[in-house]
Amino acid sequence: MIIKINGKYYKIKKIEKNPNGKYTITTENGKKYEFKNVKIFSEEELK
């Protein structure tokens, strides 16, 4: 799965839903981001 952050695309390693309704997304390079609204892309959609 792929996520778009600030115009760049990252591969997703893990998605966790937090009790506060936000999502914590861990990218393949180990960085964590927290979002309220998340749009996930499949690799097929990006081709």
Rank of each mutant, 00 (worst) to 15 (best):
M1N: 09
G30M: 02
E28S: 14
K17E: 07
G21V: 00
I12R: 00
P19L: 11
N20D: 11
K47N: 15
K13N: 09
Y9M: 08
Y10F: 12
Y10G: 01
K22F: 12
N6C: 15
P19Q: 12
G7M: 04
I15T: 01
E34T: 13
I3M: 07
S42G: 06
Y9V: 09
T24S: 12
Y33C: 05
I40K: 04
K39E: 15
Y10M: 12
E28K: 08
Y33E: 01
E16G: 03
Y33V: 06
Y9W: 15
M1I: 09
L46G: 07
K17R: 13
K13R: 12
I5M: 09
K14S: 14
E44G: 04
N6W: 13
G30S: 02
I2G: 04
I25G: 00
K31G: 11
K22W: 15
T27L: 15
S42A: 10
I3C: 09
G7W: 01
P19T: 13
K47A: 14
I25H: 00
F41L: 10
F41C: 13
I40A: 05
F41I: 08
F41M: 10
Y23Q: 02
N18P: 01
M1Q: 08
I12H: 00
K17A: 09
K8H: 13
K8Q: 12
E43K: 03
E43D: 07
P19V: 12
G30F: 01
M1V: 11
K47V: 15
V38W: 02
K36T: 15
Y9L: 10
K39L: 15
N20K: 07
N29Q: 11
G21K: 02
K32A: 08
K22A: 11
K8A: 08
F35Q: 04
K13H: 13
Y9C: 13
N20Q: 07
N29R: 06
K13L: 14
Y10S: 03
K14R: 13
K14M: 13
K31S: 09
Y33T: 02
G7A: 03
F41K: 03
I5S: 02
K13F: 12
I25M: 02
K17I: 14
E34S: 13
I5E: 01
G30K: 01
K47E: 14
G7D: 09
M1T: 08
E44T: 04
T24H: 04
S42E: 10
I5T: 01
K8L: 10
Y9A: 06
G7Q: 08
K8G: 05
E44D: 12
N29L: 07
K32D: 04
T27S: 04
K22Q: 08
L46H: 08
K22I: 12
N37W: 15
N6A: 13
E16R: 05
Y33P: 00
Y9E: 05
G7H: 06
N29A: 07
N29F: 09
F35D: 02
K4E: 13
